[in-house]
């Protein structure tokens, strides 16, 4: 929806990508904000990169602060949803930085969780501690997110690793998510097996179902 785009500037044309233009004309584009969270090194940036650029970069840098991507997802009925994906740093210190991100209502400091429609909570199947930490992240979401019906997904990344390196079984992850009543995915950013596309497709359709068009506006 073009005029849902910006609060103050309804007429600002969005020419960011061709799909957007078409969508604007048909009044079918909506925006959703998705945050990627999880411990450091579980592969959040790789997930985003695989989804956005369709590639896997072995030389991945560590994320400092936060980075940001966006991508359109089109549905079978012709409408499309623009995902703003926020990739956050998972480092310990940045968890300590939580107040900077989440709590302080300062105008200069972004609240990463504010207006987030969905959160993808990641762990690595090679690191059982990262699975345990998911609860901490979920708590933070509950504490600082301002949208009550925010969609949360648990994702176990690096499913491509050898069995000997695996520390968290598929069942274990599933059970963990089931106990918290959350959808569960196991993905691999390394392999181009479509697992990540599937994740975001499902997420997008879920967002579309649970939010009205008015609620889906861009607030980066």
């Amino acid at each position: 929806m073009g005029n849902c785009n910006k609060k103050g500037k309804p007429s600002r044309p969005s020419v960011r990508d061709p799909i957007n233009i078409r969508g604007d004309k048909e009044n079918k584009v909506s925006y959703a904000k998705v945050v990627l969270i999880g411990n450091s090194g579980v592969g959040k940036t790789s997930i985003a990169q695989r989804f956005i650029e369709g590639k896997f970069d072995e030389n991945n840098k560590n994320t400092v602060g936060a980075s940001y991507f966006q991508k359109n997802i089109s549905f079978k009925d012709g409408s499309s949803l623009c995902l703003y994906i926020w990739d956050t740093a998972g480092g310990e210190k940045f968890q300590a930085l939580a107040p900077l991100y989440y709590r302080v209502k300062s105008k200069y400091i972004i609240n990463i969780f504010q207006n987030a429609h969905a959160a993808v909570v990641c762990y690595s199947v090679t690191d059982d501690d990262s699975l345990k930490q998911i609860d901490t992240w979920l708590n933070k979401l509950d504490e600082h997110g301002n949208i009550a019906k925010m969609i949360k997904v648990v994702v176990g990344n690096k499913s491509d690793v050898d069995k000997s390196e695996r520390r968290v079984d598929l069942k274990e992850g599933k059970l963990f998510a089931q106990q918290r009543d959350l959808p569960f995915f196991e993905t691999s950013a390394l392999l181009n097996d479509g697992s990540i596309d599937e994740l975001f497709q499902k997420l997008a359709s879920q967002i579309k179902q649970s939010f009205t068009k008015e609620e889906l506006h861009a607030t980066v």
Partner: peptide, 17 residues
């Protein structure tokens, strides 16, 4: 400003590193 972007998104990283 139209995007409601805070400068912390990039400035933070620039200063830190």
């Amino acid at each position: 400003k139209a995007d409601n972007v805070s400068c912390s998104v990039f400035l933070f990283e620039w200063v830190l590193t």
